[in-house]
């Protein structure tokens, strides 16, 4: 990984060999800096870690209570309810299988699959996002409540829009020309 590239060449080898006590100082200084950075990373990770799970895992895994979880699913359009007065947004998302080639197709299939695991989502204090609609991919961060509802604190949406969608290849666009 790229990190290896940034490894500091331990202050190099200064032209005249450094005095032993100098080396010790560099060593101690370097270790202190490394420890400080490592501490920063670990404290940050406990604050910011979000465990990525599929909806299938979320529904079946009992270890999920009280962990901040990141989950993605397809939005079912007719379940979206928004209370603009109190800013309460609820909707249901369904599991999307992990391996797919075409996001739009995968979302469409998942939304129409009655067997797919589903989970109800509740978001509070947020405006209804522009992109929240049927067959959008919702990426949620939050916790699974005892009520079985996923209480999301972060919600981002991705829509396979016509703007970036791959075009179908070889689709029939007209009747055959005469003489074909």
């Amino acid at each position: 990984m790229a990190q290896a590239t940034w490894e500091k060449p331990r202050t190099g080898q200064p032209a005249p060999a450094p005095v032993r006590s100098d080396r010790l100082k560099f060593l101690i200084g370097g270790i202190l800096i490394l420890v400080a950075v490592a501490y920063l990373i670990f404290s940050g990770m406990t604050a910011g870690a979000r465990f990525y799970q599929t909806i299938d895992e979320l529904v079946t895994n009992p270890a999920n209570a009280n962990r901040t979880i990141r989950v993605a699913g397809v939005v079912l359009g007719d379940t979206i309810q928004y209370d603009a007065q109190n800013l309460v947004l609820t909707f249901t998302v369904a599991n999307v299988p992990e391996n797919f080639d075409n996001l739009a197709e995968a979302l469409h299939l998942a939304a129409n699959n009655p067997e797919a695991n589903r989970i109800q989502v509740r978001v509070e204090g947020q405006v209804k996002p522009d992109l929240l609609r049927h067959e959008a991919q919702a990426i949620l961060s939050g916790k699974l409540g005892a009520d079985g509802i996923f209480h999301a604190t972060e919600l981002s949406l991705k829509c396979p829009t016509r703007f970036e969608e791959a075009q179908p290849q070889g689709e029939i666009v007209a009747t055959p020309l005469p003489g074909a």
Binding site: L40, G44, M45, A47, G48, A49, R50, Y52, R70, S141
Partner: peptide
Amino acid sequence: ELFLGEEITLGSQYFLQVTPP
């Protein structure tokens, strides 16, 4: 994802805690 079989992503809280110092 490669070694724990579970993907952990870090939200903006991570960066807001780690970068200011």
